[in-house]
Amino acid sequence: MLNNEKISVRQFRVLVTFFTIGTIILYSPASEAKQDAWIAVIFSAGLGLLVIWLLTTIALLFPTMNFVQIIETLFGKWLGKAISLFFLSLPFVATAELLYYSGNFLTTHLMPDTPVEVLYILTAIIVVMAVRHGLETFSRTAELLFIAFMILFLLLLFISPQIKFENIQPVLEDGIKPLLHPTIRLVAIFAFNPVTLLMIFPSAVNQPKKAQKSFFIGILMGISVAFITTILSILVLDPSQIERRLYPNYAMVKMINVGDFLQRIEAVIATIWMITIYCKTVLYFYASCLGIAQVLNLKDYRPLTLPLGMIMVTFASMLFPNVVEQRYWDSEIGFVFSLVVGGFLPLFMLGVAVFRKKRT
C-alpha cells in the first residue's frame, strides 16, 4: 500500500518544477545581491545541478526504493530508523514553514482582518485532503494547475513598459563576495531541499531511467522562472526598494499598467504563488507521512495525515514569533539545516554505498 502508486515522467517533471519554484516566486535575492542578483541565480543553477546529480545518482543505485528505504538498507534497521527520522525532520519542519509563509502573506496583503490561525487550518485541510487522495491523484491535479500557472505567468510580461535597464548597472560593483550568501541560499532552495523528492524518485515513477532527465528539466524550468522574476524585479524596482520590501515581486506587479486598463493585477502573482506553494507543501507533507509510516512499519500512511496535519497547524503558529525571526531562520539556520540533510547526508550515503559495493 505504501509503494504501489505510480506517476508518469511528465507528471514527475511538473512536480519537480513546482517544488523548485515554491516560494521563490515572491522571494528576490536582490535584497542581498542588489543589481547583481541575476548573476547569483546563474551561479546557483550550476552548483545546484551538481547536487541534483548527486541525489539522482544515489537514488538510481536503488531504483525500487525511496529515500527512507535506502537509508535503512545502508545503515541497518535501528541506526537507519534514527537517520530516517533526522531526514524526515526536514519535510516536517518545511511543511510548517510553508503554512506560516502562506498565512503571513495572505494576512499581510489580501485578508488583513482574518485570523492567521484560520488560514493555517484551511490550508492544512486542503493539503491533508490532497495527500489522502494519493500521489497519483495529486499529480494529475498538478498537471492542470501547471497550465493555469503558465498562462498567469505570461501576464508578468506586461511589466515591460516599466523596465529601466540602468537599474542593472553597474555590474559587480562590489565584486563577487556579496553574491556568495544569496547564491548558497538559492542552492539550498534549488538543490538541497529537493532531497525530499527522493521519496518518490525513482520508485514511484513508471519509467525510472527517463525520470532522471525529467528531474534535471524540472529543476531548470524552476530556475528559469526564478531568473525571469529576479531580473524583472531588478529592472523595475531599484535595489533600495527591493531591500525594504518583504515581497518585492508582489510590489513589482502592482506597477503593471497597460493603457490605464490593465492594472492592479497583483492578485495574479498571488495566485501563482499560492499554486506553487500549495504543490510544494503537499509534496513535503506526503514525504513526511510516507516516511514516518515506513519508520513505524505501518501498512498505510493515510491514517497519519490527520494527526500530523493537526501537529503542523500547531507548529506553524509557534514557529516564528515575528518576521525578524523568520528572516534569521531563512538566511542562517534554515540554510545549514538544508545543507546537512540535503547535501552532507546524501554524499555520505553515496560513499557508504560505493564502499559496500566494492567490498561485496
Rank of each mutant, 00 (worst) to 15 (best):
Leu347Pro: 13
Tyr278Cys: 06
Arg132Thr: 08
Ile52Cys: 01
Asn66Gly: 12
Gly291Tyr: 10
Arg244Gly: 00
Phe87Ser: 06
Tyr286Gly: 15
Leu262Arg: 07
Val341Thr: 15
Gly343Leu: 06
Val282Lys: 11
Val354Gln: 08
Leu197His: 12
Tyr100Asn: 05
Gln212Ser: 15
Leu237Tyr: 01
Leu145Gly: 05
Gln326Cys: 00
Phe12Pro: 04
Asn4Arg: 08
Asn322Gly: 03
Gly80Pro: 13
Asn297Ile: 08
Leu155Trp: 11
Leu283Val: 09
Glu266Trp: 04
Gly309Leu: 06
Ile228His: 04
Leu135Ile: 11
Lys254Val: 00
Leu172Val: 11
Lys210Cys: 07
Gln11Leu: 06
Ala293Glu: 06
Arg10His: 10
Arg244Val: 00
Pro112Trp: 05
Gln35Ser: 13
Pro178Ile: 01
Phe149Leu: 15
Thr141Ser: 11
Thr107Leu: 07
Tyr120Met: 00
Val131Glu: 06
Pro239Cys: 08
Phe92Lys: 00
Gly48Arg: 02
Pro170Arg: 10
Met111Ser: 06
Asn66Ala: 13
Pro63Gln: 13
Ala142Gly: 05
Leu145Ile: 03
Tyr250Val: 00
Glu332Val: 13
Thr276Cys: 09
Thr271Met: 12
Ile311Met: 14
Thr17Arg: 04
Thr230Asn: 07
Arg327Ala: 03
Lys77Asn: 14
Met274Leu: 15
Gly80Thr: 13
Leu298Ile: 11
Arg10Gln: 11
Pro307Asp: 11
Pro248Cys: 03
Thr314Met: 14
Thr305Asn: 07
Phe12His: 03
Gln263Asp: 04
Gly351Phe: 13
Leu99Glu: 04
Asp36Trp: 06
Gly218Phe: 03
Arg185His: 06
Ser331Gln: 14
Val340Ala: 13
Asn322Phe: 02
Leu298Tyr: 08
Leu237Ile: 01
Val9Glu: 10
Leu350Ser: 10
Thr183Arg: 03
Leu61Asn: 14
Ser8His: 09
Trp38Asn: 02
Gln35Ala: 12
Gln263Pro: 05
Ala211Glu: 09
Ile7Thr: 10
Lys81Met: 08
Leu2Pro: 01
Phe201His: 10
Lys209Leu: 10
Met312Val: 12
Ala204Asn: 14
Ala293Lys: 04
Arg327Asp: 01
Ile25Met: 01
Met349Glu: 10
Ala287Ser: 15
Ala30Phe: 00
Asn104Pro: 02
Met1Pro: 11
Ile256Glu: 02
Leu49Gly: 05
Pro202Asp: 10
Tyr27Phe: 11
Thr314Leu: 14
Ile200Gln: 03
Phe153Gln: 06
Gln35Tyr: 05
Val195Met: 10
Ile126Val: 14
Phe320His: 14
Leu79Thr: 14
Glu136Ala: 14
Leu197Arg: 05
Ser84Arg: 11
Ile219Gln: 11
Gln294Lys: 12
Ile231Met: 09
Ser84Val: 07
Tyr247Asp: 00
Tyr27Ala: 00
Ser102Ile: 09
Arg185Cys: 01
Ala59Leu: 08
Phe190Asp: 02
Phe216Glu: 08
Val323His: 00
Val258Met: 15
Leu99Ile: 05
Tyr284Gly: 02
Leu308His: 10
Thr108His: 00
Lys77Val: 12
Val282Asp: 07
Phe261Thr: 13
Glu72Ala: 13
Thr183Ile: 08
Leu79Gln: 06
Leu198Cys: 09
Gly175Asn: 11
